[in-house]
């Protein structure tokens, strides 16, 4: 049986063999059929226990450093911690520079910490299918805290809401005026807002403005949780303990409202959506390459060619995965 080697890896991964975990994560980000095989096994009996925490926010706001400092606290609590650090794929070369873990390397030798870098590989929303699939693997392996750092694109980055129990948006002083803050969809999705680099001069003004937005309910709340606003200076280690406490408070709230399991349900549905999205986009891109070399001029014939290919692909879907 071809899947035996996957069972073998899973068995070793359950014993915290990092090499096997690393291989399994690679399967999840390689071909859809490979990912499907792994997910099919790990999702079978998995009830979902891990607390998934999403970090997003503009580039340079210090997300990686914040995560690194939080890990210090989680280590003391004896948690097993996984970090999924997502960086963008270059649209031109399809390569990626994955540098988030630079700030977290101090934890690289800790047996209870696993850090994996992922690139978006072309999917919008800042979250890749692989990233979400990786959450499921770490959850299956009994990791307690799964921290996802998403591409700091700012707007339109809302997929994380469907994945994480707790969403943290990091920002920093002096970034944009109030209009920027209001139009940025990303500023509406957090359970906890973190004003990082608050040792900077302009921080009080930005803090007061954000505070006003939350107090005046311009930034809305979800499931009755009023968003928290915290000041941190991750580099100096200031405010990180408060952040940890706020995260726990939010977790308690989620659990008490029955929201914890609801989120897991939503996450798994999102995984299905992203899986299909990735499979179709991959296929479409492949067919598009072929279309480029074809001598067809008008819009409707071009559309027909692509549409028929996709229709055929969907009909034969079982064979592909």
């Amino acid at each position: 049986m071809i899947e035996e080697y996957i069972y073998d890896y899973i068995e070793k991964a359950e014993r915290n063999d990092k090499r096997s975990i690393g291989r399994l994560l690679t399967f999840l980000e390689s071909s859809p059929s490979q990912a499907f095989k792994v997910l099919n096994i790990i999702l079978r009996n998995n009830v979902g226990k891990a607390h998934v925490i999403g970090f997003t926010g503009i580039p340079g706001s210090g997300k990686s450093t914040l995560i690194s400092k939080l890990i210090h606290h989680y280590i003391k609590d004896n948690y097993k911690i996984a970090v999924i650090a997502i960086d963008p794929t270059s649209p031109l070369s399809r390569g990626a520079f994955l540098g988030d873990r630079i700030r977290m390397q101090e934890h690289s030798l800790n047996p209870n910490v696993f850090i994996r870098s992922v690139s978006t590989r072309g999917l919008k929303g800042g979250l890749s299918f692989a990233g979400v699939a990786m959450v499921e693997l770490f959850d299956y392996l009994g990791y307690n805290k799964i921290l996802i750092e998403t591409v700091g694109v700012g707007q339109a980055e809302t997929d994380i809401m469907n994945i994480a129990h707790t969403v943290i948006v990091a920002t920093m002083p002096g970034v944009g005026d109030e209009i920027q803050v209001l139009k940025a969809g990303v500023m509406e999705i957090a359970d906890i807002y973190v004003l990082n680099k608050s040792d900077k001069e302009e921080s009080q003004k930005t803090f007061e403005y954000l505070d006003f937005l939350i107090e005046s309910r311009e930034i809305g709340s979800r499931i009755g949780w009023k968003p928290k606003l915290l000041k941190t200076s991750a580099l100096m280690g200031q405010g990180v303990e408060e952040l940890r406490n706020s995260i726990e408070e939010h977790l308690d709230y989620c659990t008490s409202q029955g929201y914890f399991d609801h989120k897991i349900n939503l996450r798994r549905k999102t995984l299905v959506k992203l899986f299909l999205e990735k499979t179709l986009i991959d296929k479409l891109s492949e067919e598009f390459e072929e279309l480029k070399s074809m001598n067809v001029e008008d819009f409707s014939s071009q559309l027909n060619i692509l549409r028929k290919k996709i229709e055929y692909f969907l009909r034969e879907f079982d064979k592909y995965i």
Binding site: G22, T26, S93, R94, G95, L109, S117
Partner: peptide, 30 residues
Amino acid sequence: RVLKDAGMEVIYTGVRQTPEQVVETAIQED
């Protein structure tokens, strides 16, 4: 940067790494 521009996904560890860190990172990132 050049490897990235050639279409590869490049993990950069940052400076002053120990041999142990490099190996552990290579394993986790496969």
